[in-house]
């Protein structure tokens, strides 16, 4: 039950198969890394899990703590406990970070319940201190004119406030300088918990210097072709993605 189980997921976009019998099991308490070259379906997986309507789902299932989330609306999936940190977070002009997160928290309240504003702000500031963020940050319009690093920080702050059961981080390290990378990794590490499972999607090994995964998966052509411990990431780094193409793809077929 305490697991995000993706079973035999098959997904197409524009008639082209992207995910092929994709299987992955992320138990709570573990951090998994999903690596692979561009175009193998990593970001498609992230969006399909979050309920993006653009993809055609041919079959399979995604159980979040035993509840089927495949084919549900994005907000239902969010409420069920899945959080996606976007590779390219979108700008929401005129809406401050504080108000945006507030709306997200309010969407989780039961009927008749109302948000305790002072408690909300003290929790927000507590998380920001933990993530070493300047308090002025929350009054800025969400992602509007943000640098790559600021956008990723805003994603981590949202994640810390929403406290999801499962976090999917899609290429969170792309476009980050080393300082930003450290802050983001620090955030993910702080959120490591026995009550939470995480999937870190990344193209490069360098993020894994800061976030040590329990399991590393290598993806190629819509499926996982090899899984192992963190040494797999290092091996991949050394041998390059050609190795995946030439050896792993063959063994898989």
């Amino acid at each position: 039950m305490d697991s995000l189980i993706i079973d035999n997921l098959n997904v197409k976009i524009d008639g082209k198969p992207i995910l092929k019998n994709f299987c992955l099991n992320i138990p709570k308490g573990e951090v998994h890394a999903l690596m692979g070259p561009n175009g193998t379906g990593k970001s498609t997986l992230a969006k399909v899990l979050a309920g993006h309507e653009e993809y055609e789902i041919l079959g399979g299932s995604v159980l979040l703590d035993g509840i089927e989330i495949l084919g549900k609306e994005p907000d239902e999936i969010s409420h069920a406990g899945l959080f996606l940190a976007f590779q390219y977070p979108l700008e929401i002009p005129g809406v401050s970070i504080a108000n945006f997160i507030r709306a997200a928290i309010e969407s989780r309240l039961c009927e008749g319940e109302s948000l305790d504003a002072p408690a909300y702000y003290s929790r927000l500031y507590e998380k920001m201190d933990l993530l070493q963020m300047d308090r002025k940050f929350t009054s800025r319009s969400l992602n509007e004119g943000f640098s790559g690093g600021e956008k990723k920080r805003a994603e981590i702050l949202q994640m810390a406030m929403i406290e999801p059961a499962y976090c999917i981080l899609d290429e969170t390290d792309s476009g980050l300088d080393i300082d930003a990378l450290k802050i983001v990794s620090n955030g993910v590490n702080i959120m490591r918990s026995n009550d939470r499972g995480s999937l870190i999607i990344t193209h490069y090994q360098r993020l894994l210097d800061y976030i040590v995964p329990d399991v590393v998966h290598v993806m190629w052509d819509g499926q996982i072709v090899r899984s192992g411990d963190k040494s797999l990431a290092l091996e991949l780094e050394k041998k390059g993605y050609d190795w995946v193409k030439e050896e792993l793809a063959v063994t898989c077929a």
Binding site: D75, S78, A103
Partner: peptide, 26 residues
Amino acid sequence: EQIFYMRQRGLSEAQAMSLSVNGFVN
């Protein structure tokens, strides 16, 4: 994509639209 982003955080489609509108006129 903006609507999808907001819905991923838990907002309904209508809530996401009102938030964008409120941001626009803020």
